[in-house]
């Protein structure tokens, strides 16, 4: 027999330990989560660069040359290098999510994660190659 539940006028206070603001710096998996979330800042940063590029493109050949010279600024090159690493991290973590979000079954058996994620990488390679081709093709 359960003991009868006593009536309480006030709800007892729960004990909650205060989580440090820097909880994510304690463990590699938490830090990885935070870095992955922060990749979005670099995604937005690239959009800003793209908008500036479009603006320069409208300004004519001189303005566009000015934009390209601006990109040669060492500070910007370093920032873009960091940005590149972050978006790479975003892409890999994003593609690897597919098998977790979608369980593909073939003849009743679940396909291994690698095979579900693989088409992403193939498509990624194809898209990247197409962009490089379009932007470096001369004439």
């Amino acid at each position: 027999m359960k003991p009868p539940v006593a009536y309480r006028q006030y709800h007892p206070k729960w004990h909650r330990t205060r989580v440090s603001t820097f909880w994510w710096s304690r463990k590699w998996s938490y830090l990885k989560f935070m870095l992955r979330e922060l990749s979005s800042v670099f995604v937005a940063f690239y959009v800003v660069i793209l908008l500036l590029q479009l603006h320069a493109l409208r300004g004519g050949p001189d303005a566009y040359q000015g934009f390209q010279d601006w990109l040669r600024n060492p500070l910007l090159v370093i920032l873009n290098g960091i940005s590149f690493l972050f978006v790479l991290f975003h892409a890999v973590t994003w593609f690897n999510l597919t098998p977790k979000a979608m369980a593909v079954r073939l003849r009743g058996k679940r396909l291994p994660d690698v095979l579900v994620a693989a088409p992403n990488y193939v498509a990624w390679l194809a898209v990247s190659a197409l962009v490089v081709f379009l932007l470096t093709r001369q004439g």
């Binding site: 660069i49 873009n80 978006v87 892409a91 962009v131």
Partner: peptide, 14 residues
């Protein structure tokens, strides 16, 4: 972003 940004940032940024 996953499909297009790595290649675009690699080209225009580096």
């Amino acid at each position: 972003a996953a499909f297009l940004l790595p290649v675009l940032i690699f080209l225009y940024g580096l």
